[in-house]
Design a protein around this nucleic acid. Structure first.
Lengths: 108, 108
DNA sequence: GCCTACGTATAGACTACCTATGCCTTCCTG
DNA sequence: CAGGAAGGCATAGGTAGTCTATACGTAGGC
């Protein structure tokens, strides 16, 4: 209960964003998001893997099997051109919504 | 399709927030949120009324039947003390999450 | 007389998340 | 060397919260 829940709809955005900096395997994606948010955001595996499946089907990422530095079998995900495009869309949408919400919240 | 979807989880927060400024009836709540956000946010009736029911059950708002300025039968909602407390909680939670998300998004 | 805006409310579908579970490997520690 | 923790991938099932569609009703303008 210490960690924050994700705001529904932002998971894909966050994953696309961390992949923009370079390919990562699933487990590392979750860790990276946690780390960047000072552990405020926790990505559950039961949320992450289905999301990655969806992103694969949409063509936003591509996957490749390989080995991690710790010699374990890992599936590495990398952003495609379509993924970059989608990232821009989701980011703009997120900005719009948060701006709109702020304008309500800061009501005098 | 022009208007933005709500981010799930923020509806209660927005309703509590506009009620903080004074009692309103349901229809007016939706209008107020739309207006404050320059019509970016659209609160659907099928979302709003169930949310208000929940807020009633939780004791965050109380309702009273009355008449609108246009002489129609309206149900006016006002914030309770518990509602004010909940507003503070949700607001803080929202701030924390958006801050965390921003810290991921602004990744170099 | 009809349409639009105003107004409340529920049922059903859908989306997207979480929990729980399963399975496997590597590494550390007792 | 046995066991557990941490590293890994993945699915099934439940749930929460939204949207769509529908229902019902009134006031006012054309």
């Amino acid at each position: 209960m210490p960690k924050l829940e994700l705001v529904p709809g932002t998971l894909i955005l966050l994953v696309l964003r961390v992949l923009e900096a370079g390919p990562l395997h699933g487990y590392a994606i979750a860790q990276r998001i946690g780390q960047l948010s000072q552990d405020a955001l926790q990505v559950e595996e039961g949320s992450l893997y289905p999301a990655l499946q969806k992103m694969l089907m949409k063509g936003w990422v591509e996957a490749e099997w390989g080995l991690s530095e710790t010699k374990r079998r890992v599936r590495s995900y990398s952003l495609t051109a379509a993924g970059r495009k989608q990232l821009a869309i989701e980011r703009a949408g997120y900005d719009d919504v948060t701006r709109a919400i702020q304008s309500v919240l800061k009501l005098a």
